[in-house]
Design a protein around this nucleic acid. Structure first.
Lengths: 185, 185
DNA sequence: ATGTATGTAGACAGATCTGTATCGTTTTTC
DNA sequence: GAAAAACGATACAGATCTGTCTACATACAT
């Protein structure tokens, strides 16, 4: 592996293990073992474990949002259709055997203090996703785009939470059906 | 405090701290300090921390479902109205300054392995809540009661997740509005 | 190509966490 | 009221966790 790729590789390994075991349970030793990297290397890139968590969440935020954008924008031009396609993006996510719920919700669960930087990272991600839905709603020319975006967003969160517990993908299509009814009204 | 109350007091203290700090971060020493109880006492009631977690979740499950039932059943007789009142129950919950999201979702986030007893406790709770919603839907004489119950449940989960991040109560009424539209259709 | 950056390997310190052991005291129970 | 059970306080063992230190090897830029 090239040295320029080590940092991102560490972040990808870390977020995967955080997602699998939780942020506290996934220790530094486990992360470096999985990433096949020395502990010195990790601590050269990140001063503390919290910094690693924050960087991993930030990277996940960027990747997920870019993926979602690309997913819906390559499949439809109509903003309404794109809003509905976000649920298909969720469905693909749920189908992965690594899926164990939203890492940002889990992060907020483990670091629930309002002023905790980890919690704030979760808030930031959710705000950005909501903002994207709002953009789509505005582009769709729907009345009350903010309200529609909040409702679609709530359906997203519901589908994710249900899928986290049931470990089935069907909540994505259920939520999509509800979103369709919402947009038809 | 009477000795017969110590067990429940420990469970209440534990679930509060698990909710505040997370299941891993809330240590046994913190719990016994907060509960003003000796460590020996805790380990006389529960063989391991995991047993404490399971018992605390089980107690929470029973309390929450009994509370929700009592909340909606003292406020309306019409099953449709009772379905909608579940969102007001959520709103009251969100308004508490101790609210930090659903403990069962957080438990599933920290113990995501499908065969983990803690995860199974979360699954059980969610199944029971869904079953209650199904009962209400059946009593309301709605077509496709299972489907309606799943949709209401998804709106619940969405409202909780949004409230966990925003720390506002408004997602409860937003979800209620969506549920109303659902029941009207 | 040569020095600087970064990497590997692993021992180590210090804190923290779960769970046990000890022992005196209090409460319950019969 | 006496025996049994439970509680309080605290020390302790052993594991684990974060973060540091040392010593050496490798890659990269100038």
């Amino acid at each position: 592996m090239k040295r320029s790729e080590i940092r991102d590789h560490l972040l990808d390994t870390a977020i995967a293990l955080f997602n699998k075991h939780g942020f506290h349970a996934a220790g530094v030793d486990l992360i470096i073992a999985e990433a096949r990297v020395a502990k010195t290397t990790l601590y050269r890139h990140f001063p503390t474990k919290e910094a690693l968590i924050l960087a991993a969440l930030q990277r996940r935020d960027e990747i997920v949002r870019a993926e979602m954008r690309s997913f819906v924008e390559t499949r439809a031009r109509d903003p309404r259709e794109r809003l509905l396609l976000t649920f298909d993006y969720l469905e693909v996510w749920f189908a992965k055997d690594t899926f164990k719920g939203c890492p940002f919700i889990s992060a907020a669960g483990e670091h629930g203090a309002k002023d905790d930087p980890v919690f704030q990272a979760a808030v930031h991600h959710k705000r950005e996703v909501l903002e994207y839905l709002r953009e789509l709603a505005v582009a769709a020319g729907i009345g009350r785009p903010e309200e529609i975006a909040r409702k679609i967003n709530l359906l997203h969160e519901g589908a994710v939470a249900v899928a986290q517990i049931t470990r089935e993908t069907s909540s994505a299509q259920l939520a999509k059906e509800m979103a369709r009814a919402l947009l038809a009204a």
